[in-house]
Write a protein that binds this DNA or RNA. Sequence first.
DNA 1: CTCCGTGCCTGTGAGC
DNA 2: TGCTCACAGGCACGGA
Length: 284
Amino acid sequence: MPELPEVERIRRGLMEHISGKTIAQVSLPFPGLVKNVDPAVFMEKIRGAKVRALQRRGKYILVYLDQYLLEIHLRMTGIFLFYPGPVEAGPHTRAVFTFLGTETLHFQDVRKFGTFRLWEAGEMEVSPAFCLGLDPLEDDFSFSRFEEKLLVKPHTRLKSFLLDQRYIAGLGNIYVDEALHRARIHPARLLKTLSDSEKRALHASIVALLRESIQWGGTSFSDYRGLQGQRGVFQEHLKVYQKAQEPCFHCGHPLARIVHSGRGTYLCLRCQEPPLLSPGSIQS
DNA sequence: CTCCGTGCCTGTGAGC
DNA sequence: TGCTCACAGGCACGGA
């Protein structure tokens, strides 16, 4: 599942391969991919546009075309694959961009959760990608700005907060569990109960974790790949995600899996001390 | 306000 | 061997 490090690596791959290039044609084997305009209109408008810039905001990829903004969310299984020449669309190919010359870019998405939205210059501000919280890789992700966000919702539980893209943008289930374990804080803690040192540990953990993951090429459990189909290897460096029963990296105690915010949550119940009130149902 | 369940999807793997 | 079915989860949305 692409989260910030994976999306960032894909953005860098797109920078390398399609920046400055002109889109000769787009086809949409799965037209439902485009959410906010008619697919035929989408194809028509994109044709002939040049890729001016590529940005990432949280888990969104923003492709700046001449007078349009293409906003892409990969959701669970979306990936881009770049080819030097024409390649036949596979069973999960949802969009094919053909550039002037022979190069092609396939958008592949097994589960069809991914979304494309096309915005005109001027209406971009209404797009979801412009309603996000702090990006942990940006310079402005300082401890004080992070703490400001924590203070806004004192009665929210920590994991719910970290997953909410309106406060911090880019974290998903894997990196939230990893960051909380690294900082040794239980996911069900209320924000208002966090000590100053815990907040600082969490802030530092998030930044360090995401940077490390990018250096390792991201986490490839199943679908995520780079533009050339490369796997990331950060899954080999994860300490808790999908490791129930395995010994905790810090203390050796067997890791647990609970359900929190409706999601599978991995943690060490010894290092990450539960709050006094019900922490959630323990499944083992 | 916060929390929880549901729908969107389909491949995977456990269990029978 | 082949089938069924729960599970995975980001996000939007509706209801408690």
